[in-house]
């Protein structure tokens, strides 16, 4: 929707969240440049360097996306109010959820059931991915597709996605924060703004807010599954050396 019904303004907080969104094209070109550099480096190191596997490519994309997620978080007014210790705890708790949300929201707008669209613009055919995948990855992809379908039915919009990111980042269930009360209050403010937004933009759909919130535990469950899968791949030495991705995996399991 471009504008709410007359007289009902979009909550200021939601507009602020949209303003803080990163430029997708900028992130895409940064990550693409990084991948290009990486492949060049690999081929110069060895004459018969193997091309990156789909899984390897997706790990590198996830790693680079994590860098942009940290950049995004640092740009948020609410986040800046916290000490680095609390910032780290929040990010350790939600990095995989934010990665899954990034993936899911791209898929929702991609609209194709048989391929995955990466932030780099590359399309990965699901058929070929699943042909090499074990049961765990197949279940993960299946779960992702179901969530995408739910959100497509709801026609999740970009302002709601922006709110989701804050609800995920400022998770009031994170323990041992120095400023717990603040995180809880941000969560309350964001959910209040999202409720107000859905009521003003989708007044005919009063259940929308609760239906949106129901998707968050599903996203959480998927991210736990994805982390378990990545851990397993990491322990078997199959995750390429991705600094931030592996650091996050270690931090959470420590």
């Amino acid at each position: 929707p471009s504008a709410p019904p007359a007289g009902l303004p979009v909550p200021a907080l939601v507009l602020e969240f949209v303003r803080c969104e990163q430029d997708e094209l900028q992130v895409r070109s940064k990550i693409s440049a990084h991948l290009g550099h990486l492949q060049q480096e690999q081929s110069s190191r060895s004459a018969k360097a193997e091309p990156l596997s789909t899984f390897g490519l997706m790990c590198h994309v996830a790693d680079q996306t994590l860098f942009s997620i940290v950049e995004w978080a640092r740009s948020c007014t609410f986040f800046k109010e916290l000490k680095v210790g609390d910032q780290m705890k929040l990010l350790h708790n939600c990095w995989s959820e934010l990665l899954v949300l990034d993936y899911i929201s791209r898929q929702v707008h991609h609209g194709k059931q048989d391929s995955i669209l990466l932030i780099t613009g590359q399309e990965v055919e699901l058929g070929s991915l699943l042909a090499q995948a074990g049961v765990t990855l197949a279940e993960l992809v299946q779960g992702g597709q179901e969530l995408v379908q739910h959100l497509q039915e709801l026609q999740l919009d970009r302002r709601e996605i922006a709110c989701f990111k804050y609800l995920i980042l400022f998770n009031p269930d994170v323990k041992l924060l120095e400023n717990q009360v603040y995180v809880e209050s941000v969560y309350e403010q964001v959910s209040g703004a999202l409720l107000e937004y859905t009521l003003c933009v989708y007044p005919q759909h009063v259940e929308r807010f609760s239906q949106l919130l129901l998707r968050l535990p599903e996203l959480r469950a998927l991210s736990v599954q994805a982390e378990d899968y990545l851990c397993y791949k990491h322990l078997s030495g199959e995750v390429p050396c991705n600094n931030l991705l592996i650091e996050m995996l270690h931090a959470k399991r420590a």
């Binding site: 860098f67 940290v70 640092r74 680095v84 780290m88 990010l91 931030l244 650091e247 931090a251 420590a254």
Partner: peptide, 18 residues
């Protein structure tokens, strides 16, 4: 464990974010 978090801490600490 501290070493594990070095990169994230660096990313959060750098520049103006104090």
């Amino acid at each position: 464990k501290k070493k594990d978090n070095a990169l994230l801490r660096y990313l959060l600490d750098k520049d103006d974010n104090t």
